[in-house]
Simulated assay, not measured.
Amino acid sequence: MKGADTLHKGERKAILQSVESLLEKYRLFKYLIPEDGQSIRSNHDIESLEKHRTFCRKIEQAVSQLPDREQFLIKERYLGINTDYITDYRVYRDSFDPPISEGTYTKIRWRAMYSLSVLLGITEYQ
């Protein structure tokens, strides 16, 4: 991951914010928008619902391409229905078995976020 390690702090922060924003959008689409068609009133609603499903599949596909530890971290911290209430501390102390340190967690999260940013077209691999 040489490309990920050469970025400046500001670039890293921007990438983290961009990917976290997409993952938040994923949760909104995945868990708050009905998939059973209860609120569909028009063709626009159907088109919008299909765009949301496509977006969610794109995120899920990108996450599935990550190494196991990165994939686990992203799913535990960012993709679940209750992730707004889960902290990084809880993930690295309670979810990983055995628990990992904060530093290790930060490294795994950064690699996962950088990889997702490349897979989702936010940044180019350097």
Rank of each mutant, 00 (worst) to 15 (best):
L28H: 06
D36C: 09
K9E: 12
Q17I: 12
S21Q: 08
E35I: 12
R12Y: 05
A14F: 07
K30L: 04
Y31I: 09
K9L: 06
Y31G: 03
K13P: 00
D36M: 07
H8P: 03
P34L: 05
S21M: 10
L16C: 12
S39D: 09
S21T: 14
E20P: 02
I40R: 08
L23D: 00
H8F: 12
V19K: 00
L28N: 01
I33C: 05
I15Q: 05
R41V: 12
S39I: 13
I40S: 04
E35N: 08
L22G: 03
R27P: 02
Q38V: 14
L7M: 13
S18C: 10
L22R: 04
E11T: 13
I40N: 04
K30P: 00
D36S: 09
S21Y: 08
G10I: 08
E20K: 12
L16F: 12
S39T: 12
K30D: 00
I15P: 02
L32N: 03
K30T: 07
Q38P: 00
K9Q: 10
L16P: 02
L23T: 03
A14R: 13
R41N: 13
Y26P: 01
H8L: 13
Q38E: 11
L23G: 04
K25E: 06
G37H: 08
E35T: 12
L16S: 15
S39C: 07
E11P: 04
L32P: 00
E35R: 06
Q17C: 13
Q38R: 14
Q17A: 15
H8I: 09
S42V: 15
A14E: 15
G10N: 14
Q17T: 14
G10L: 09
D36R: 03
S42I: 14
H8G: 09
Y26C: 05
G37M: 11
Y31V: 10
K13E: 15
F29N: 02
K9C: 01
S42H: 09
L28K: 03
E24F: 07
G37Q: 07
L7C: 03
S42T: 15
R12D: 00
F29I: 04
F29D: 00
E24A: 11
D36A: 10
E20W: 00
E20H: 06
P34H: 05
P34F: 07
R12G: 02
H8N: 10
Q38A: 15
L28P: 00
I15C: 07
E11R: 13
L22E: 07
L16I: 13
F29T: 01
K30I: 06
G37W: 08
E24W: 04
S18T: 11
A14I: 11
Y26G: 03
E20N: 12
G10E: 14
Q38T: 15
G10D: 14
L28F: 14
S42R: 10
E24D: 08
R27D: 01
A14T: 12
